[in-house]
Structure formats: C-alpha cells, structure tokens
C-alpha cells in the first residue's frame, strides 16, 4: 500500500527562525521514514539544504520522543525538528 502520509511538522528556536515558519503539513509517500522526510526537506534547497545537511547538529522528535533517522513515519505523526536543547 502506498498511501500518502500527511505529517505535522514543527520547528523550534533557531530552525523556526531560519525556516520562517513554526509548523507545516508535508505529505510523504508511505513507507516514510525520518531520513526520507529530511531528504525531501533538503530538496527545497537554500536554508533547508544548509540547516538539515549531514554535518549539522539538530534533533528530530516523532510524536514528542527523540527519534533516530530510520524511524518509520505514519499519517498524522507529529515530527519536530529542533537544535540541541539549552534549558536549565
């Protein structure tokens, strides 16, 4: 089955500013993964390609849990992309 998966993306802090948005919906063909989503976003070029390139330090959380790049994504998942945390 190759149903498209609509993902709810969130961006925080420096990445929210760099991307000029705090959220958006992105539709990916299933089966989707974090890696596939990142490749799609990098494909936009410009700041997306720069900020999400392999050498940059950022985290991805799926449904509010920090996840690895091979994490599968399903329709309706909340996917947050953010810089390393600096609270406390």
């Amino acid at each position: 089955m190759l149903n498209p998966a609509a993902l709810n993306l969130l961006y925080f802090a420096r990445l929210r500013e760099a991307f000029g948005r705090d959220r958006e919906t992105v539709v990916m063909p299933e089966p989707a993964t974090v890696d596939g989503l990142l490749a799609t976003l990098q494909g936009r070029g410009g700041v997306w390609a720069d900020e999400l390139s392999a050498g940059r330090n950022f985290r991805v959380a799926v449904n509010q849990t920090v996840s690895g790049r091979d994490q599968p994504l399903r329709a309706g998942d909340e996917v947050a992309i953010f810089p390393p945390v600096t609270g406390g």
């Binding site: 925080f12 802090a13 920090v66 947050a80 953010f82 810089p83 945390v85 600096t86 609270g87 406390g88």
Partner: peptide, 13 residues
C-alpha cells in the same frame, strides 16, 4: 538537572 539540560526541549535566546 544534568538530564534536564540535555533532554528537555528548552531553548534560550
């Protein structure tokens, strides 16, 4: 505190 500093999603501007 050590875990909060590295795991809780806060960002300082």
């Amino acid at each position: 505190m050590d875990y909060l500093k590295t795991r809780a999603p806060f960002w300082k501007h």
